[in-house]
């Protein structure tokens, strides 16, 4: 049996957790889910392959509490003895399984793209934000692993989805770190992660003032502005706009990279864009090799033309 930790937040199941359920179903016919509260999600988790949904019920688990979640999962591991425990390759999914691994002193393989159970256990996992893959064997009694976000699509595979409620034993230390407050975003408008169009600038923009060109084009296309790490390090734009391995990883319908060379740090964040346009003075820049459309030229000359023609086409 494989146990899958499913995260949920404010009324919705985490998409990557469903992907983890799908990978688990590829490995074992018996997949069970564990969720902190949220019995109402059991039918949905059943649709994605969970035969039993173990619902942890505890007054300390009304909102996300990382160590308490891990303690509840360790309790289940002790009673159910799964062959593997999987989770989502997200900030929360990786955090919870790292706690589980620390509590049980077993290995934990984060961000896996492939898993083969048996002896030995084999995993392929992402390094460098997915720009490099590592093939490893894991020496363990129970595999702890998370599934790299969006490496595989979630596929429905109906199972019973029967609820089994349990009350975990939690110590005060397990509940020492909990959310005390939620704060909204500093800026309104379309967020980088959700935007269908992202117009992004790099070192080739020359300075913060040139970003008004990107704001104009993004506005015409109903998108938002992004940037590379060079730009945030220079203080030209806020970090919330950074696309990349240590910024935000995005997969918009259209990504327009302006004056961005395409270091691996940046490509890790934008290579899943459905259509990628690159404007750069250097024809050999890495971004030009992965672009669908490339214009070799200076953004300061090219963008005003693109903006004028787009404005004419929209009638704006």
């Amino acid at each position: 049996m494989i146990l899958v930790h499913v995260d949920h937040d404010r009324g919705a199941v985490d998409a990557v957790s469903l992907q983890a359920l799908t990978l688990a179903r590829c490995l074992d016919s018996d997949v069970q889910a564990v969720i902190m509260g949220g019995a109402e999600f059991a039918p949905e988790l059943g649709e994605y392959g969970a035969s039993i949904v173990h619902v942890a019920e505890h007054p300390g688990l009304t909102d996300y509490a990382p160590q308490a979640t891990a303690r509840a999962i360790v309790g289940l591991i002790n009673s159910l003895a799964p062959t593997a425990v999987l989770g989502a390759g997200t900030a929360r999914g990786n955090e919870v399984l790292a706690h589980v691994a620390a509590m049980t002193d077993l290995p934990f393989a984060a961000d896996c793209t492939e898993i083969t159970l048996g002896s030995p256990v084999r995993v392929t996992r992402a390094r460098w934000g997915g720009n490099l893959l590592e093939e490893s064997t894991v020496i363990t009694t129970t595999l702890f692993a998370t599934v790299f976000a969006h490496a595989i699509p979630a596929v429905q595979s109906p199972a019973a989805g029967a609820v089994s409620a349990f009350t975990p034993e939690l110590s005060p230390a397990d509940l020492a770190v909990v959310i005390i407050e939620r704060a909204g975003a500093a800026s309104a408008g379309v967020t980088l992660a959700e935007a269908k169009v992202v117009v992004s600038g790099g070192r080739g923009m020359g300075g913060p003032e040139s970003f008004s060109l990107l704001e104009d084009l993004a506005g015409l296309l109903g998108g938002t502005v992004g940037c590379s790490r060079v730009v945030t390090s220079a203080g030209w734009r806020p970090h919330a706009e950074q696309v990349g391995q240590t910024g935000t990883k995005i997969a918009p319908d259209l990504y327009i990279a302006c004056g961005i060379s395409g270091a691996t740090q940046h490509l890790a964040g934008c290579k899943n864009s459905k259509t990628l346009i690159a404007i750069n003075t250097d024809p050999d820049a890495p971004i030009m090799q992965i672009a669908d459309y490339a214009i070799v030229g200076d953004v300061h000359a090219v963008l005003p033309q693109v903006i004028a023609l787009t404005r004419a086409a929209t009638g704006a």
């Binding site: 490099l132 490893s136 894991v138 363990t140 669908d292 033309q305």
Partner: peptide, 29 residues
């Protein structure tokens, strides 16, 4: 206990980049 075997650089999908001119025709495209 996670014993590294080999590293693999994932193959980039062959994109067939279309290069456009840096002029009004390119902008129109």
């Amino acid at each position: 206990r996670i014993v590294k075997g080999r590293l693999v650089v994932p193959a980039a999908a062959a994109k067939g980049t279309k290069v456009l001119d840096a002029n009004e025709q390119g902008a129109a495209a």
